[in-house]
Simulated assay, not measured.
Amino acid sequence: MTTAEPRSYPFSLPERLDVEPMFANLRANEPLSRVRLPYGEPGWLATRYEDVKVVLGDPRFSRAASLQHDEPRMRPQPSQSGGILSMDPPDHSRLRRLVTKAFTVRRIEQLRPRVREIADGLVDAMLDQGPPADLVEAFALPVPVTVICELLGVPYEDRVDFRHWSDAFLSTTKFTPEEVVDCTGRMHAYLEGLIAQRRAEPRDDLLSGLVAARDNEDRLSEEELVMLAMALLVAGHETTASQIPNFVYTLLTHPEQLAVLRADLSLVPKAVEELMRFVPLGLGAGIARYATEDIELGGVLVRAGEAVLPALASANRDERVFADPDELDLRRQDTSHIGFGHGVHHCLGAPLARMELQVALDTLLRRLPGLRFADGEAGIDWKEGLSTRGPERMMLTWDH
């Protein structure tokens, strides 16, 4: 049975990286429940792994339909129209194909030595300065920001501006709606300027390739070009910059698992997958999908035109799929998490994020012996008012 009156969601304020306690109860007793987010119409919350995969992967659930609805969401402003995240195939497939080549596993592996060089350079600076150091500013932000700047073709010296704009892009309450509109407009104008530069002087970067696809092959509109560049710039650094300190925090608060990893750094790739499963990155649920016809899901008939929100953090803790799901186990064999999503909107940059996270963990553990909190929880400031979770400051020390 489902409750008639939608519950307010999120059910509780997030504590650090804790998973919502209510999820386990819902998975057992009410896998699809009615919820109301701070903005938009009510929707269904899917909490079981298999149901979440259906919502993300079944073409009967549409993202494009959200543009015709007041979709349930965490922030006042609705999703950007014209963006790849608001599209279904074939338009989504058309845009995704334009950038897929830049993010193949083979292409990303060719970048690994450069990412290792960036990470080592940042640790060199940390060692030169001596402890303590803020992991976020000294390492976690510069690694993915440098990489996406080089890949996309964005000047690294502009990072302070686009970091600020990115925060506005992901704001739930940190920025006012007017500030979000202003920052989005500034980022839009900034990328229009870079696109104009690439038209005049093409380079060997992803932005130049997208401009060529627009001008020479007419494969996307001008607005689609700007919005795609914006999505790549924000997504290309924000999630990894949050997950590096999230992963370090999780390891430092699970010392027995950290000891396992320190003893055998060849486990780093497996550790990244387990940490992707274990750590809840997003605040709330995934973006809503709309049923295009009546569909039975989780024992409930979802009517055509109703929204369903996939709770990825709950799916990744589903006891039907993962043994001891609330235990961090870096030797876990089943790594079929959906931390990068699933279906047509599966994270385009997943190979890049995986590689960056592997390099980051390996570099930090290899080069900073005895890495630990400099001042316990007092040295950590957690993000507030953003749709991604994680520290905005994390003071660490090490043996020297």
Rank of each mutant, 00 (worst) to 15 (best):
A4P: 05
R7G: 06
R7T: 11
L37E: 11
P38T: 13
Y39H: 15
Y39F: 15
T47F: 11
L56C: 14
P59V: 08
R60L: 05
R60V: 07
A65L: 09
L67W: 10
H69I: 01
M74Q: 15
M74W: 07
S79H: 12
V99K: 05
Q110C: 04
P113I: 13
A119K: 07
D120C: 11
D128V: 10
L135V: 12
F139T: 04
F139Q: 13
V147Y: 01
C149A: 12
E150Q: 13
V160D: 14
W165P: 01
D167W: 00
F169D: 09
T172W: 13
T173H: 14
P177M: 05
V181Q: 08
R186A: 13
E192A: 03
G193P: 01
R198D: 03
A213N: 05
R214F: 09
D215W: 01
R219Y: 05
E222F: 02
M230H: 04
M230T: 12
E238A: 14
T239M: 08
T239G: 00
Q243D: 01
H254L: 02
P255Y: 09
V260W: 02
L265P: 10
P269S: 05
K270H: 11
F278V: 00
V279P: 03
L283W: 06
E293W: 00
D294P: 00
E296C: 06
L301A: 10
G305R: 01
E306G: 01
V308K: 04
N316Y: 11
R317T: 12
D318L: 13
F322R: 02
D324M: 04
D329Q: 10
D329G: 01
Q333V: 09
G341R: 02
H342P: 06
G349T: 03
G349A: 03
R354W: 03
V359Y: 09
A360S: 15
R366T: 15
G370C: 12
D381S: 15
D381M: 10
G390S: 07
M394F: 14
L396F: 11
